[in-house]
Protein backbone atom coordinates (compact mmCIF):
# COMPACT_ATOMS: atom_id res chain seq x y z
CA UNK A 1 0.00 0.00 0.00
CA UNK A 2 2.55 2.55 -1.12
CA UNK A 3 0.40 4.64 -3.34
CA UNK A 4 -2.70 6.22 -1.84
CA UNK A 5 -3.38 8.54 -4.76
CA UNK A 6 -6.19 6.41 -6.22
CA UNK A 7 -7.84 6.07 -2.83
CA UNK A 8 -7.68 9.82 -2.36
CA UNK A 9 -8.97 10.40 -5.88
CA UNK A 10 -11.95 8.12 -5.32
CA UNK A 11 -12.79 9.41 -1.85
CA UNK A 12 -12.86 12.88 -3.32
CA UNK A 13 -14.84 11.91 -6.42
CA UNK A 14 -17.48 9.95 -4.50
CA UNK A 15 -17.46 11.75 -1.16
CA UNK A 16 -17.44 8.31 0.48
CA UNK A 17 -15.06 7.18 3.18
CA UNK A 18 -13.77 4.18 1.26
CA UNK A 19 -10.82 3.63 3.62
CA UNK A 20 -13.32 2.76 6.37
CA UNK A 21 -13.95 -0.67 4.79
CA UNK A 22 -12.87 -3.64 6.91
CA UNK A 23 -13.79 -6.31 4.34
CA UNK A 24 -16.82 -7.86 6.00
CA UNK A 25 -18.21 -8.95 2.57
CA UNK A 26 -21.74 -7.87 3.39
CA UNK A 27 -21.95 -5.89 0.14
CA UNK A 28 -20.96 -8.90 -1.91
CA UNK A 29 -23.24 -11.31 -0.08
CA UNK A 30 -26.31 -9.11 -0.61
CA UNK A 31 -25.69 -8.25 -4.26
CA UNK A 32 -28.39 -9.66 -6.60
CA UNK A 33 -26.11 -9.69 -9.67
CA UNK A 34 -22.82 -10.73 -8.11
CA UNK A 35 -22.76 -13.84 -10.32
CA UNK A 36 -22.34 -11.62 -13.39
CA UNK A 37 -19.45 -9.63 -11.92
CA UNK A 38 -15.77 -10.14 -12.65
CA UNK A 39 -14.74 -8.53 -9.36
CA UNK A 40 -16.71 -8.90 -6.16
CA UNK A 41 -17.90 -5.55 -4.77
CA UNK A 42 -15.83 -5.83 -1.57
CA UNK A 43 -12.78 -6.47 -3.72
CA UNK A 44 -13.41 -3.37 -5.79
CA UNK A 45 -13.34 -1.40 -2.57
CA UNK A 46 -10.14 -3.15 -1.45
CA UNK A 47 -8.44 -2.61 -4.81
CA UNK A 48 -9.23 1.08 -4.55
CA UNK A 49 -7.44 1.15 -1.21
CA UNK A 50 -4.53 -0.76 -2.72
CA UNK A 51 -4.29 1.64 -5.65
CA UNK A 52 -5.11 -0.91 -8.38
CA UNK A 53 -6.51 1.78 -10.63
CA UNK A 54 -6.58 -0.05 -13.97
CA UNK A 55 -8.08 -3.23 -12.58
CA UNK A 56 -10.98 -1.33 -11.04
CA UNK A 57 -11.68 1.07 -13.89
CA UNK A 58 -11.71 -1.67 -16.52
CA UNK A 59 -13.86 -4.02 -14.47
CA UNK A 60 -17.24 -5.26 -15.64
CA UNK A 61 -18.54 -5.02 -12.09
CA UNK A 62 -19.10 -1.27 -12.06
CA UNK A 63 -21.41 -1.68 -15.08
CA UNK A 64 -23.15 -4.84 -13.90
CA UNK A 65 -24.35 -2.96 -10.81
CA UNK A 66 -28.09 -2.22 -10.87
CA UNK A 67 -27.86 0.64 -8.37
CA UNK A 68 -30.34 -1.18 -6.14
CA UNK A 69 -28.30 0.13 -3.19
CA UNK A 70 -28.62 -3.04 -1.11
CA UNK A 71 -24.84 -3.07 -0.51
CA UNK A 72 -24.79 0.56 0.58
CA UNK A 73 -27.66 0.20 3.03
CA UNK A 74 -26.04 -2.87 4.58
CA UNK A 75 -22.51 -1.49 4.88
CA UNK A 76 -21.62 -1.30 8.59
CA UNK A 77 -19.24 1.56 7.79
CA UNK A 78 -21.83 3.59 5.87
CA UNK A 79 -19.94 3.45 2.61
CA UNK A 80 -22.36 4.05 -0.26
CA UNK A 81 -20.78 1.40 -2.46
CA UNK A 82 -23.26 1.88 -5.30
CA UNK A 83 -22.30 5.54 -5.29
CA UNK A 84 -18.60 4.63 -5.48
CA UNK A 85 -19.39 2.50 -8.55
CA UNK A 86 -21.29 5.42 -10.03
CA UNK A 87 -18.23 7.63 -9.55
CA UNK A 88 -15.99 4.95 -11.07
CA UNK A 89 -18.22 4.82 -14.15
CA UNK A 90 -17.67 8.50 -14.81
CA UNK A 91 -13.89 8.17 -14.61
CA UNK A 92 -13.88 4.99 -16.71
CA UNK A 93 -15.86 6.72 -19.48
CA UNK A 94 -13.72 9.84 -19.33
CA UNK A 95 -10.62 7.70 -19.82
CA UNK A 96 -12.32 5.36 -22.30
CA UNK A 97 -11.68 2.33 -20.15
CA UNK A 98 -15.24 1.10 -19.75
CA UNK A 99 -15.73 -2.66 -20.04
CA UNK A 100 -19.26 -2.19 -21.34
CA UNK A 101 -20.70 0.76 -23.25
CA UNK A 102 -24.43 -0.04 -23.38
CA UNK A 103 -25.43 1.30 -19.97
CA UNK A 104 -23.75 4.64 -20.50
CA UNK A 105 -25.07 4.94 -24.03
CA UNK A 106 -28.64 4.30 -22.94
CA UNK A 107 -28.37 6.71 -20.00
CA UNK A 108 -27.00 9.33 -22.34
CA UNK A 109 -29.86 8.91 -24.84
CA UNK A 110 -32.22 9.14 -21.87
CA UNK A 111 -30.66 12.44 -20.86
CA UNK A 112 -30.64 13.76 -24.45
CA UNK A 113 -34.36 13.16 -24.59
CA UNK A 114 -34.96 14.92 -21.27
CA UNK A 115 -32.81 17.84 -22.37
CA UNK A 116 -34.77 18.17 -25.60
CA UNK A 117 -38.33 17.74 -24.33
CA UNK A 118 -38.12 18.24 -20.56
CA UNK A 119 -39.65 14.80 -20.10
CA UNK A 120 -38.52 11.40 -21.24
CA UNK A 121 -39.75 10.51 -24.71
CA UNK A 122 -39.61 6.75 -24.26
CA UNK A 123 -40.03 5.58 -27.82
CA UNK A 124 -37.47 8.00 -29.23
CA UNK A 125 -34.92 6.95 -26.61
CA UNK A 126 -35.53 3.25 -27.13
CA UNK A 127 -35.42 3.49 -30.93
CA UNK A 128 -32.21 5.52 -30.87
CA UNK A 129 -30.63 2.87 -28.71
CA UNK A 130 -31.94 0.04 -30.88
CA UNK A 131 -30.65 1.67 -34.05
CA UNK A 132 -27.25 2.20 -32.50
CA UNK A 133 -27.20 -1.48 -31.50
CA UNK A 134 -28.51 -2.48 -34.95
CA UNK A 135 -31.14 -4.52 -33.12
CA UNK A 136 -34.31 -3.67 -35.01
CA UNK A 137 -36.60 -6.56 -34.28
CA UNK A 138 -35.39 -7.92 -30.95
CA UNK A 139 -38.13 -6.36 -28.85
CA UNK A 140 -40.58 -5.43 -31.61
CA UNK A 141 -43.19 -7.77 -30.23
CA UNK A 142 -42.88 -6.25 -26.78
CA UNK A 143 -43.11 -2.74 -28.24
CA UNK A 144 -46.25 -3.60 -30.18
CA UNK A 145 -47.76 -5.31 -27.16
CA UNK A 146 -47.14 -2.26 -25.01
CA UNK A 147 -48.52 0.01 -27.69
CA UNK A 148 -51.74 -1.99 -27.95
CA UNK A 149 -52.15 -1.84 -24.17
CA UNK A 150 -51.72 1.93 -24.31
CA UNK A 151 -48.40 1.78 -22.52
CA UNK A 152 -46.22 3.31 -25.20
CA UNK A 153 -46.84 6.88 -26.31
CA UNK A 154 -45.87 8.08 -29.78
CA UNK A 155 -45.65 11.83 -29.30
CA UNK A 156 -43.18 13.55 -26.99
CA UNK A 157 -44.31 15.53 -23.94
CA UNK A 158 -42.72 18.94 -24.23
CA UNK A 159 -42.56 21.24 -21.24
CA UNK A 160 -43.14 24.95 -21.68
CA UNK A 161 -39.86 26.21 -20.29
CA UNK A 162 -37.54 24.18 -22.49
CA UNK A 163 -35.34 27.23 -22.91
CA UNK A 164 -34.70 27.48 -19.18
CA UNK A 165 -33.99 23.77 -18.95
CA UNK A 166 -31.49 23.86 -21.83
CA UNK A 167 -29.83 26.82 -20.19
CA UNK A 168 -29.41 24.79 -16.98
CA UNK A 169 -27.80 21.94 -18.89
CA UNK A 170 -25.48 24.35 -20.66
CA UNK A 171 -24.42 26.01 -17.43
CA UNK A 172 -23.50 22.70 -15.78
CA UNK A 173 -22.46 20.40 -18.60
CA UNK A 174 -18.99 21.60 -19.44
CA UNK A 175 -18.16 22.70 -15.97
CA UNK A 176 -16.96 19.38 -14.70
CA UNK A 177 -17.68 15.74 -15.17
CA UNK A 178 -19.34 14.07 -12.29
CA UNK A 179 -19.90 16.89 -9.84
Amino acid sequence: MNDLSFLNEMEKASGEKISGCYQCYRCTIGCPVVADMDLYPHRVIRYIVLGERERVLTSKTIWTCLQCVTCSVRCPNDIDIAHVFDALRKIAVKEQKEAETDTWKFDQYFMDSVKKHGRLHEIETVLRYKIEKKDFFGDAKMGMGMFIKGRMGILPHNIKDRKGLKEMFKRLEDKKIGG
Binding site: R119, I159, G179
Partner: peptide
Protein backbone atom coordinates in the same frame (compact mmCIF):
# COMPACT_ATOMS: atom_id res chain seq x y z
CA UNK B 1 -44.64 22.55 -16.15
CA UNK B 2 -42.84 19.80 -14.22
CA UNK B 3 -39.90 18.06 -15.86
CA UNK B 4 -38.27 14.63 -15.62
CA UNK B 5 -36.45 13.81 -12.36
CA UNK B 6 -33.58 12.16 -14.22
CA UNK B 7 -34.40 8.79 -12.62
CA UNK B 8 -31.58 6.29 -12.76
CA UNK B 9 -29.83 7.89 -15.72
CA UNK B 10 -29.00 11.43 -14.64
CA UNK B 11 -26.85 10.67 -11.60
CA UNK B 12 -24.75 8.23 -13.59
CA UNK B 13 -23.98 10.83 -16.26
CA UNK B 14 -23.61 13.94 -14.10
CA UNK B 15 -24.56 14.30 -10.45
CA UNK B 16 -24.89 18.06 -10.38
CA UNK B 17 -27.25 17.98 -13.35
CA UNK B 18 -29.21 15.23 -11.59
CA UNK B 19 -29.68 17.51 -8.58
CA UNK B 20 -30.50 20.50 -10.77
Amino acid sequence: DWSCCGASAAHTINETIAHA
